[in-house]
Design a protein around this nucleic acid. Sequence first.
RNA 1: GCGCUUGUAGCUCAAUUGGACAGAGCAUCUGACUACGGAUCAGAAGGUUCGGGGUUCGAAUCCCUGCAAGCGCGCCA
Length: 579
Amino acid sequence: MEAVLAGAISEALTRLGVDADPSRIGLERPARADHGDWSTNAALVHAKGAVMAPRDLALRLAAELDGTGLPHLERTEVAGPGFVNFHLAPSWLHEVLGAVLRLGAGSYARHDAGAGQTVNLEFVSANPTGPLHAGGGRWGAFGDSLARLFRRCGYETHTEYYVNDRGTQMELFGRSLAARLDDRPVPDDGYHGEYVAEWATELASELSAGASSGADDLTAALEALGGSAYAASWGRDRALRDVSEALEAMNVGFDHWQSENKLVASGAMDNAIAGLRQGGWTYTEDGAEWLRTSDFGDDKDRVLYRSDGEPTYFVPDIAYHDAKFDLRRLRALQRRGAIGDTRRHDPDNETVDLVIDVLGADHHGYVPRIAAAMQMLGHPAESYEAIVGQNVTLMRDGQVIELSKRTGTMVEVRELIDAVGPDVARFAFLLQSIDSRQTIDIDLLSAQAAENPVFYVQYAHARIASVARRAESTGVEPVPPAGTDLGPLVGEREVALLRALEVLPSVVETALRERAPHKVTTWVRDLAAAFHGFYHDCPILHSDNPPEVRDARLCLTEGTRIGLAIGLDLLGVDAPEAM
RNA sequence: GCGCUUGUAGCUCAAUUGGACAGAGCAUCUGACUACGGAUCAGAAGGUUCGGGGUUCGAAUCCCUGCAAGCGCGCCA
């Protein structure tokens, strides 16, 4: 419909002798229903070139369009400073509903914008030194929903979690665990959380179970295995199990967990650094080796190898990001079953087209240097993208809870999920833009869990399922056959619901383009609201209803179910048959 | 001090990226089924879009400036 209108507008302008510039013509769905179904600013934009008052041009344009016999067009109108509004007959929405029913949840609102393109999406990547902080849930929900949007738009999509299992933090974590194990004080700059003590107890029982002959000296048993280094690696696995389980509970999964240790062991660092040196991007100063990141907009150059010869954390990060561009690496992971099914892809293309990091605001300073390094290694500037989101503030009892490694205070995602359930938690994270700081008051969220908007949406879905069950029990086909006359759907609430359903494809498209899954949340609430209104005012299975009205409404109900199912799936939230 | 992000109803947030009278949900007040699930629906009230300039047919949105908040600014990770 949009394409038909856009073409007609351009042609009409040309017939009026105006030099039409299609790129500047805006065609949009007005916010207010009484402004019609579509609206164009074409007259406003072209008035100057046509040397006419905007309204005069609008009037002539409207008259011209009225004469062309466009399908479904009831009338045009000129409004405001010179908008031309198109009022369409409900029949155009009936065609939309027909398409929704024909395509179903699998195919409606799908785009092939990303066909043949591969995207790699990294998110969460919290250090494996403890359970996942509740704030981390935001990145999980966001990243996972964004991945779902990419998939729906035809991208071959890989999701990754980078495991920083190497370096100072891991050592400290290992030493903290070891210290707890023999009741020594935890190092000052170590990990003081309650969980460290609990995990040390677990480690202790594993050690004593594993020790052959009642070795009750745990310290000796640990030393035999490698001391705090063993504790660190054991703790890493323990933490990752905890993190993945918590994310799984929120319906968040990853195709691949990349260990930094294994990456380094593979020689990836040497390869990447060789590439940088070859390109002449490095130099030595004060005994350290530097990278010319300021050539690409970074504030200053960055150290790769310290004067003592040790690589900074930056080196493995470069190697990792470089590796993420390598499709052969992803294929190899796939063969090992680390990654799920793949979609069609150009077999000659060996490069991932888009590598995305989802980061918290506290890491934004790191973006320019990694972007610089990727360009030095030959990856086009637009192929690396960092999405920087604002962090979450957690509250309890009206008090802000500061995340502190020293004192060990934290709120775990698990705790949040246990308190309110996965759907409320996930919906809450996806309720607002990633650009705005989010405050989650765990008590407030628990207390108001029953009023959470997620239930409003899920209730709409459950109601529809209930209608279907009732239809079945009275011998009525819950989904009338294709070709059912949708003509009876002309009431205000029916049209409002049809309109809400119609915009889903463009919502999906903009949500992906703007990396804004919360747009799906907003839409799904709108659709649910339109459905509840329809349901309240328009009886479906009531015996007074003529069969043709009943069947048309059943079609609309099923179409709504499809829309809700798509939206909730994109959000990773359950679409229940009953509540 | 410099940089990034943000500032919208009492609270939490939207606003088709420059469009028409800035919209929802909570909270407050008032109403609605002898019909398919009342976790619903309808209505009222609530605004100088942080302040001040500017750009144009048109600004919450873009530019300048001031204020406020969060984050970042190491041969730490």
